[in-house]
């Protein structure tokens, strides 16, 4: 579904991603682990071109999205993204937050979008918040809304950039539950996270990154039971 070839990214002289190759298959739940500054967020943000790769080719559903002629807005309509800091639009109600993109990109009429919003909000248990503003919600509620907002575009893949890192510990669970539900529905997901439990339980494949390289990748059970790379062993011994 997403194919990454020879992806490199540098900020000035600092090489953040060093020649990565990766393929993400439909239905996979890829969890990206690694220490801060390892390049995992940059890798994720390259997948929908929020960061422009310095070199390399990224293909999504057969389209080369790194081609300057590619209509990236069109591609992004099929890739949902959830951010660490939610990034809800504070000047709009929750309903408007969710329906703005589907309506403006002409994927749905306002009526359809409103119905979709209601339905998705019900699924995450926040139906009564439709007319509230983001400032009135807790962190966990905001992040669940952010997930709903991305889902309203009916994306083929969802990218999560540390979705629980900015939350109170109490609220992590409610967000992870929504993500688990999503995984059970068969959504293709790429998740950058520090939640080892989630990686083990939900992930179908784990990537371990450090220093701009993917040092190790494996099935979660294998990865946690039997880490091979010394850096992985060190990392896991510190976080588990």
């Amino acid at each position: 579904m997403i194919d990454v070839k020879n992806l490199s990214k540098s900020f000035g002289n600092h090489l953040v991603l060093d020649n990565l190759n990766q393929h993400i298959y439909p239905g996979e739940k890829v969890v990206v682990l690694g220490p801060s500054g390892s390049g995992k967020s940059t890798f994720l943000r390259c997948l929908n071109l929020l960061e422009t790769p310095t070199s390399g080719i990224i293909t999504f559903d057969g389209t080369d999205i790194t081609d300057p002629k590619c209509d990236i807005d069109q591609v992004r309509q099929h890739m949902g993204m959830v951010f660490q800091h939610f990034n809800l639009f504070p000047n709009m109600t929750i309903r408007k937050n969710i329906t703005l993109a589907p309506v403006r990109t002409k994927r749905m009429s306002q009526q359809e979008a409103d119905d979709t919003a209601t339905q998705l909000l019900r699924r995450v248990g926040l139906e009564e918040k439709a007319d509230a503003y983001p400032a009135q919600l807790s962190g966990g509620q905001k992040q669940r809304i952010a997930i709903v907002r991305a889902l309203a575009m009916r994306p083929k893949v969802m990218l999560f950039d540390e979705p629980t890192s900015a939350l109170d510990p109490e609220m992590v669970g409610e967000v992870l539950d929504v993500m688990k539900q999503l995984a059970d529905d068969g959504m293709t997901m790429v998740v950058v996270t520090h939640e080892m439990g989630f990686a083990r339980e939900v992930g179908s494949r784990v990537l371990f990154m450090d220093g701009g390289h993917i040092l190790e990748e494996n099935k979660p059970q294998e990865f946690f039971a039997n880490p091979k790379h010394p850096r992985t062993i060190e990392f896991l011994s510190k976080v588990l």
Binding site: D73, Q77, M81, F83, F89, L100, T105, A150
Partner: peptide
């Protein structure tokens, strides 16, 4: 304005002009 606002708008597939008009400029 938090660059995350622009990123969130663009990540949803909204164009630069729409993101400016509905999200960035009002804030």
């Amino acid at each position: 304005l938090d660059p995350g606002q622009m990123e969130a708008g663009r990540s949803l597939g909204l164009g630069y002009v729409d993101t400016m008009r509905f999200i960035v400029i009002p804030q």
